[in-house]
């Protein structure tokens, strides 16, 4: 555990809590892509199957359980509790265009051809693109509430901090997880355009993000 990894995990947790509280307190999921949230729940489910097979640390176990519970709670809020506020007409990204290639790639390029390892690989690849329905939705509507942009900022920052963590781990312990690193770079690239808008617009005091 290094500072980049810890800050990355904290950033990830903050992102998920921000989104959950935004929906819970406002009793509305307006502007939020339910599809992206289902994909993230699928990411955690397929990645954390090792909860049943290997123990790494108390920290690791607790964080995994928290991420799983919060991701499913968020999906519950969007599709059941506050379903009437869900903007399904703007959430039109075709997720099969993500799921099919990602599933195919996870069978082709993995560390071990076992179910749990293929599912782990699937989760890494899927995570790198899971935010696309949300970004697509913002592009389509042309705007996002500032609280939604804070969520996206911390969610993007998390993987960027993991990149620093991987550089650190490579130099200090020779650790190199090619699948995670390549996917992490791809994932972070998807946020770059958003980061630019976030810094130039939201942090300068605009109440919401509107696309130029």
């Amino acid at each position: 555990m290094n500072v980049f990894r810890l800050l990355g995990d904290v950033s990830h947790l903050v992102a998920i809590i921000i989104l959950f509280l935004k929906i819970f307190r406002s009793k509305s999921c307006a502007g939020i892509s339910g599809k992206s949230q289902v994909l993230f729940a699928l990411v955690f489910t397929t990645r954390y199957l090792d909860l049943f097979t290997s123990f790494i640390s108390i920290y690791n176990t607790v964080m995994k359980v928290v991420f799983l519970v919060l991701s499913y709670a968020t999906v519950y809020l969007i599709y059941l509790r506050f379903r009437s506020s869900y903007d399904s007409e703007s959430d039109t990204f075709r997720v099969e265009f993500l799921l099919v290639p990602v599933a195919g790639l996870s069978f082709l390029e993995n560390y071990d051809f076992t179910p749990i390892e293929i599912l782990w690989t699937f989760s890494i690849y899927l995570e790198s693109v899971a935010i696309l329905p949300q970004l697509f939705m913002i592009t389509k509507t042309g705007e996002a509430e500032s609280i939604t942009t804070h969520y996206l900022f911390f969610l993007g920052l998390y993987r960027a901090l993991y990149l620093a963590n991987w550089v650190w781990r490579y130099h200090t312990e020779g650790f190199f997880d090619q699948i995670a690193v390549v996917s992490g770079v791809v994932q972070t690239i998807f946020y770059c355009d958003f980061f630019y808008l976030y810094v130039t617009k939201v942090l300068k005091g605009n109440s919401k993000l509107t696309l130029p």
Binding site: N60, M63, W120, D177
Partner: peptide, 10 residues
């Protein structure tokens, strides 16, 4: 690397 590994990251 093609060895199965323990995934210690989240």
């Amino acid at each position: 690397t093609k060895e199965p590994m323990l995934h210690d990251e989240l």
